[in-house]
Structure formats: structure tokens, C-alpha cells
């Protein structure tokens, strides 16, 4: 909910190229990234993007592959709104919002049957085709919502995935010849190659201006926004449109180009910090 006066204030300011917190239209808020906040998860990170506060925990477990992709691993997304963030998140409300975000994530991050377009080579997660594979569970927890949730979640996800190591698996012929057995060697493990995983840059339009990293008030003032998943090379991996207002194709093109410019810069600064913390 936003009052007509506040809406007019924000819209007119943006029209003049200024925002409520003094940022320019294409600037991000101060971003804080902590990697390894949950030792019991295989990978974890917390991102504070201005007032937005999210935590991502990643668990790697053995599961069954999908029937139509027997030789690939799986990635599952789940977004929970913590009632600690706001009493409004309690109950059904939060669940519906969470399912929406999880779908947008799945659409942007695991693209194509092998997942390669989304940055993860799912084939490397296969253990025994048709029988078992590694399943990567990405669980996001929203502690406070001050806009640009998907941007913050994907940033945290990048931090959490950088920590993931996949244990080495030795396949041996079991006693019964039909079902092979495997041994998991936690000592020997290899890093998950997640460098090509995209982050989401949300671009919105208020008046004639394009904005990135919107606060929740600004989100209420824009008629529509695009969640654009961009990888380190600046390629677009997925797009989700939010808001019912139709968009002109040329406007969409401009927004995509904007995300392609900004995304790689964000990834670069995130990676520089992650390498600093985790080492090579």
C-alpha cells in the first residue's frame, strides 16, 4: 500500500533522475554478503541488499533422477518467508509468495534439459543413470523484504553454491549383478562448477526512466518490471515479467540491454569477494 502523495513524490523524483535514498537510477544499494553462515548446510550465504535481508542454504543429497532425464541430476528451489521478517508472512500468504519466487528462480537458473543454459551442467551430477543422482536443494529464507528479492536471493545463491563440494562416488558391482552399489568418499570431493550460474537483475520503468535495485516503495510505483537472469558473460538466461501492464517490444529490448550491462559487473564484484573468503 502506498499513498497517492508518496507515489507522486517518488515518481517525480525519479523523473528528475534522483531517488529517495540519494542513489542514481542505475545504482545498487549498499550490499553485504556473508558466506558460510550456516555450517550445517553444504553451502550458505546471507545477503543484505539495503533493507532486504535473505539467507540461502544449499544441501546436496542423493535422490532419484527425473524419469524423462535419467542421466541428469536435479536442482530444487524453495523460498520461505520467515514470519520473523513481518507478521504478514505468516501462514498461506507467505507460502504463495514463496512459490512464486521459487518458480521464477527455477525458470531462470535451470534452463534447458541439461541445465547448461542456466549455468549448471546437470549431467555431472548423475551417479547411476536412471537410478540415483545428486540433488541440489536451494532453500532461501526471506528475513526482510525491502524490494528486489530475486536479485538478493540469486546473489546469496551464488555465494552458497561457491561453497558446494560434490563427494567422489565409486561405483562397484554389487552382490546381485543387477543393482550396482556405490561408495561415497567424502574425503575426495570436487568443487561444483557454478561459475556460469546467472544472477537476476530486476529492471523496472517509472515514468520514462529505467531503474535497478528497487526498494519496496519504488516497486509499488512501477507498473511492471522484468526479472532478467544474466550470466557473467552478459548473456540473458531467462526473463520473468511482473505486473500486468503490456510492454512495448522496444522497451523490453532496452531493459534487456541494461541488464546485460549491469549483471556482469555485479557478478564480478561478488566473485572477487567470494574468492577472497573461500580461497581458490
Amino acid at each position: 500500500m502506498i499513498s497517492a502523495g508518496e507515489r507522486a513524490y517518488i515518481t517525480q523524483c525519479v523523473e528528475g533522475g534522483l531517488r529517495g535514498d540519494g542513489r542514481g537510477c542505475l545504482d545498487h544499494r549498499v550490499t553485504r554478503l556473508d558466506v558460510g553462515t550456516i555450517p550445517q548446510a553444504n553451502g550458505s550465504a546471507r545477503v543484505q541488499l539495503g533493507g532486504t535481508d535473505v539467507m540461502v542454504g544449499v544441501k546436496v543429497e542423493i535422490g532419484a533422477p527425473l524419469a524423462f532425464r535419467p542421466d541428469s541430476g536435479r536442482v530444487e528451489f524453495n523460498v520461505d518467508f520467515s514470519p520473523c521478517g513481518s507478521p504478514d508472512f505468516e501462514g498461506k500468504e507467505g507460502e504463495v509468495l514463496g512459490a512464486d519466487l521459487a518458480n521464477a528462480l527455477a525458470r531462470s537458473v535451470v534452463v534447458g534439459p541439461d541445465g547448461k543454459a542456466g549455468g549448471l551442467d546437470l549431467a555431472t551430477l548423475s551417479i547411476l543413470p536412471g537410478n540415483s543422482c545428486w540433488v541440489i536443494f536451494v532453500d532461501a529464507l526471506i528475513l526482510n523484504n525491502d524490494g528486489s528479492l530475486l536479485d538478493a536471493v540469486t546473489m546469496a545463491m551464488r555465494g552458497a553454491l561457491a561453497e558446494i563440494r560434490i563427494p567422489h562416488v565409486e561405483i562397484t558391482k554389487g552382490d546381485s549383478a543387477e543393482v550396482p552399489e556405490f561408495e561415497i568418499d567424502n574425503e575426495k570431493s570436487s568443487k561444483l562448477d557454478a561459475g556460469a550460474v546467472p544472477i537476476i537483475v530486476t529492471v523496472a520503468k517509472i515514468g520514462r526512466r529505467y531503474l535497478v535495485d528497487l526498494t519496496s516503495e519504488e516497486e509499488l510505483c512501477s507498473d511492471f518490471s522484468l526479472h532478467i537472469a544474466v550470466n557473467a558473460e552478459g548473456r540473458v538466461c531467462g526473463v520473468t515479467k511482473k505486473g500486468s501492464t503490456p510492454v512495448h517490444a522496444s522497451v523490453m529490448q532496452e531493459m534487456l540491454e541494461l541488464a546485460q550491462r549491469i549483471g556482469p559487473k555485479v557478478i564480478e564484484s561478488l566473485d572477487a569477494y567470494i574468492v577472497d573468503v573461500l580461497g581458490e
Partner: peptide
């Protein structure tokens, strides 16, 4: 009062 548990909190991932 309400208590929630994060899916990644325990050794095994908690099913939703």
C-alpha cells in the same frame, strides 16, 4: 508465539 524451522537446519534436509 510461532516457531518455524529452516529446511537446511538439520543434518538431513527437512521435507516441506
Amino acid at each position: 508465539c510461532q516457531v518455524a524451522t529452516a529446511p537446511f537446519s538439520a543434518g538431513e534436509r527437512r521435507r516441506r
